[in-house]
Nucleic acid binder design. Structure first.
Length: 229
DNA sequence: GCGACAG
DNA sequence: ATCTTGTCGC
């Protein structure tokens, strides 16, 4: 699929934050977003060694699933090197170049992107899922495994139970229990989708495990690619 | 000021 | 994120 170039590219954390502020007005958070997507893509990145600094080997994977059957439609994985250090809030600049390259290698254009991380549940309301959404023009949302910004009460302990994730008095996401009695995931809208729809898709994509199949497939693919250099 | 902090 | 042993439960 076509993805525009990543310009400008920041040289410092301050420049990176400024880019987020520039792009944030381009977000479409009106919703509701795709109710019955044909295909959904999961994205994830794995690192070799200490994945916190710069210069580490990485593998970025995109796996496109049939949204109804969860069968794999297409896979794409690329390897590279980290060009930006891990800084909370600037996480996107670490994974974006490799993820964009992997997306470009796809022969199909997914109807929806599920990111490993956050969307608007972000200090500047512009997490990885937002950035990928603005860049690709596709509907996106994020599914995080741990809390980042905001706070929430623990949701009920049954699959499907939720509680709002609130930051600065705003609901920026939702803690969503995808399995009975198992730690919830954190869902936030990225672009061209609302929170309700994002949570519905997350639940549909996670029929058997805590994490959505999109994330699990992309995680496995990126990890495997890293293991065989 | 200090701690916490997606992956 | 990654580095890691054993352990509990279905």
């Amino acid at each position: 699929m076509e993805v525009p170039d990543l310009h400008p590219w920041p040289a410092t954390p301050a420049e990176a934050a400024a880019i987020q502020d520039e792009l944030r007005p381009l977000l479409d958070l009106a919703g509701p977003g795709p109710q019955d997507p044909g295909t959904v893509a999961g994205l994830d990145v794995s690192y070799a060694g200490d994945g916190a600094g710069t210069g580490a080997r990485l593998a970025a994977a995109v796996v496109v699933l049939d949204a109804r059957t969860l069968d794999v439609v297409e896979e794409s994985v690329v390897t590279g090197t980290t060009a930006f250090p891990y800084v909370p809030g600037l996480f996107a600049f670490r994974e974006l170049p490799a993820l964009v390259e992997a997306l470009r290698a796809l022969t199909v254009t997914p109807d929806l992107l599920v990111c490993d991380g956050y969307g608007v549940a972000h200090p500047r309301r512009f997490g990885l899922a937002c950035h990928l959404g603005v860049l690709t023009g596709l509907p996106t949302f994020g599914v995080g495994k741990t809390a980042f910004v905001g706070s929430c009460e623990p949701p009920g302990d049954r699959r499907g139970d939720t509680s709002p994730l609130v930051h600065d008095g705003e609901t920026v996401g939702r803690a969503l229990r995808t399995r009975d009695g198992v730690k919830p995931v954190f869902v936030s809208a990225g672009h061209r989708i609302d929170l309700d729809t994002a949570c519905r898709h997350t639940l549909a994509l996670a029929p058997a495990y805590r994490l959505p199949e999109t994330t699990r497939r992309a995680d496995r693919l990126s990890r495997d690619a890293l293991a065989r250099p």
